[in-house]
Design a protein around this nucleic acid. Structure first.
Length: 334
DNA sequence: TAATTATGACGAC
DNA sequence: TCGTCCTAATTAC
């Protein structure tokens, strides 16, 4: 399931391809027929991401809230405007060798960030007549023969312009809201580093965490404490901080809590800019090279249960926390 | 062909 | 803590 970085990328895709255009909305599957009718024929005016939630704004103060949940996805098809990373870093399904594409991914330290993220919003090259699935990862599909394509599978919502089509499937939330309800929804969420890059958000996160007896491993996944972190980033952030997931929030040194926040901000930015969950960017160059060479995984601990820790050799353990799988090194994160 | 899995979240006890 | 909702790809048999 998509964590925060994917949702921000999908939002940018809507900004590039839909904002400013009149949208025809339908529900091929039928389960969102009423909501689709409320949107149908309106011009999209805005696309925003907060944590794992996306809000698409339409003329007349009508908003569509979408949460992809564990396996939701948006499929774009038609003449798609790509950004540099989508255009270059994603292998065509079944053709380009996937690991090759990752090895060619930008060095995170070389990625140039600009304040508003305008660089990655800008589209590169001519629109490409193709299919693109955006979920927890992005995959370019086979070339398009007809437009719009026949809906495949359970398409909850189809948004259509003259040139491009976006199909939503498998969302855990999909509803039409007025601006007040949008505000209420956003207000409940913890800070998102991309929305709140300033010191206030770090302050807010730190003070909340430092008050709670709850294990830090649960707090990081709590969208009301910090928005956008999911199961992969949780495990990786905790390892990078060498922090025991069971440590109560209030027992974590204040400076370490701040470091967690800053590290999340960094990983999120890298994730949004590259389209990859890069969590091994800087801690250990040797381990990073080894992981890249082995090709099948690129994380410190996520999905590495039973394998030796890349730093100390101790076997990574798997346990259940917050009804999700938690991976960690009992030695490094003692 | 069936079972399993997934990078969520919520509500009922 | 459990059950439930959402869907498709992958794996097991």
């Amino acid at each position: 399931m998509p964590e925060g970085h994917s949702v921000h990328r999908i939002t940018r895709q809507f900004e590039r391809n839909f904002v400013g255009h009149v949208v025809h909305a339908s529900s091929p599957q039928g389960r969102f027929a009423v909501g689709a009718a409320e949107i149908d024929g309106r011009r999209m005016t805005d696309a925003r991401a907060v944590g794992k939630q996306m809000f698409l704004g339409f003329e007349g103060d009508v908003w569509l809230r979408v949460h992809l949940g564990m396996y939701g996805a948006w499929d774009f098809s038609g003449e798609i405007l790509m950004d540099a990373t989508i255009a270059s870093a994603n292998g065509r399904m079944g053709q380009t060798n996937q690991r090759g594409t990752f090895l060619d991914a930008p060095n995170p330290d070389a990625v140039v960030f600009d304040e508003a993220g305008e660089n990655s919003l800008r589209s590169i090259g001519a629109p490409r007549k193709t299919r693109l699935r955006m979920a927890e990862s992005e995959k370019e599909g086979n070339t398009l023969d007809t437009f719009p394509p026949e809906p495949i599978g359970q398409v909850r919502v189809r948004l259509l312009t003259d040139t491009i089509c976006a199909d939503l499937r498998g969302p855990t939330a999909c509803e039409v809201l007025d601006p007040v309800r949008v505000e209420q929804t956003v207000a409940k969420l913890g800070p998102d580093p991309l929305l709140d890059p300033g010191p206030d958000a770090e302050e807010r996160f730190t003070s909340v965490v430092r008050k709670k007896p709850t294990p830090i491993g649960l707090l990081l996944m709590d969208q009301n404490v910090v928005a956008g972190i999911g199961n992969v980033y949780r495990a990786e952030l905790l390892f990078r901080a060498r922090l025991n997931p069971h440590t109560p929030g209030r027992r974590v040194r204040e400076e370490l809590v701040r470091e967690l926040w800053r590290d999340w901000a960094r990983l999120l930015r890298i994730g949004v800019e590259t389209g990859q969950m890069m969590t091994m960017d800087d801690l250990d160059a040797e381990a990073y090279r080894a992981a890249m060479a082995s090709r099948d995984d690129r994380h410190w601990v996520y999905k590495r249960e039973g394998l030796p820790c890349r730093v100390c050799g101790t076997n990574i353990v798997l346990e259940e926390m917050g009804a999700r799988k938690l991976y960690w090194c009992p030695s490094c994160q003692a």
